[in-house]
Design a protein around this nucleic acid. Sequence first.
DNA 1: ATAAATATTTAGACAAACCTAAAACATTTA
DNA 2: TAAATGTTTTAGGTTTGTCTAAATATTTAT
Lengths: 218, 218
Amino acid sequence: MTLSEEDYIKAIYHLGKGDNTTVSTNSVAEMVETKPSSVTDMVKKLSDKGVVNYRPYKGVNLTEYGQKIALTLVRKHRLWEVFLVEKLGFSWDEVHEVAEQLEHIKSEKLIDQLDKHLGYPQVDPHGDPIPSKTGEFKKTIKKLLIDIPVGTSGICVGVKDSSPPFLKFLDKNKIALGDTILIVDKEEFDGSFNIQINKKNIHISNQIASNLYLKISE
Amino acid sequence: MTLSEEDYIKAIYHLGKGDNTTVSTNSVAEMVETKPSSVTDMVKKLSDKGVVNYRPYKGVNLTEYGQKIALTLVRKHRLWEVFLVEKLGFSWDEVHEVAEQLEHIKSEKLIDQLDKHLGYPQVDPHGDPIPSKTGEFKKTIKKLLIDIPVGTSGICVGVKDSSPPFLKFLDKNKIALGDTILIVDKEEFDGSFNIQINKKNIHISNQIASNLYLKISE
DNA sequence: ATAAATATTTAGACAAACCTAAAACATTTA
DNA sequence: TAAATGTTTTAGGTTTGTCTAAATATTTAT
């Protein structure tokens, strides 16, 4: 697969949600930042190669084979993201662009060894799951902390309230996007929570818990 | 710079030895595995961009600007080689192909952080020097162990005698290509050496020392 | 149901990087 | 020093991935 082909495959994969829905020419064009006519060309080529199912005017989705390729790309992308954050000290929001380039490197051994070097991580710094070598992975969902049962853990991926006081609170308590948070327990009386973050336990109010989004495995 | 352009720049750099000698169209063609006519095309383009000096029928070499680009590519290539060997357990001879891809990744931060992560290495697994961010590096030379003064260290890069008994000896003593060897001292009496390799001292005969090539910094 | 709006495809062109074959130049050899 | 040989360039063509403009299909709204 060429670099371009891989970009189209990834776009069709992501637009097709988890369920490989058929997607429109226009949406693909927007995602790969090109014109619809270019998408038509490419999609025909990918169809000839057995990577996508394409019906003119009706849309495209991935074949089994195409899905396998997409999952390999996603796996590579997310492993590199973990590497950049954990080993090279990149922050949460700097990794995408570089991972976008690294995911195209071709070497099975490289990815296997990288996976091992990183300790076989299950999720990337955005809380998204990393497919295994054979393409399996757990789906994840985004939930407010308040709706997550005690005992589960997730990755902090966003806030509902983005007012300065709230952000300042998070900063003071060293809660940052990308952090892993474990729900230790919930106080029935006032709806407050004990959570563990960076190996430290802290106590947060119901109010705070209602404004923090975590990503958890289903 | 595109991927192709970078490949040509590297070829012109390597063919020009250390001293940026003018090189022939044919030699570049051979190095980048293409036809001479393609080289002419590309070299004209690079000349327009101020990367090379080109005189038809006379050859090409790099401009100051071109040399800077070449050194950055060499730096990236060699840092990635160190990474592959030290962190991912690749062997000496597996790294080139992958590094050839990785060297094209564009991100200054990535290279800076990688350099730091690796502990600012001076040489790659083949004993070749890694240019600093500003393009400086020490020249290295290949010498028989027997000709190297006591106290210096180098990287094992080859053998003069490649007969099975000799290779078996190296294997038994865990001397492999890519290993760093320090010349601890030399016995005047029989011309034998004490060397340190992988933090262990071993004793080798004059005979052995005459057949091992090391790369050392000048 | 049909016209208008929108989405998609086709046709024809372009740039990058390559190729082959032929012409131009340079070097060697006789 | 002229012919032979080898190297380099030119001319013209190909492929990949892109584009614009025009044509066609589909969807939406009246």
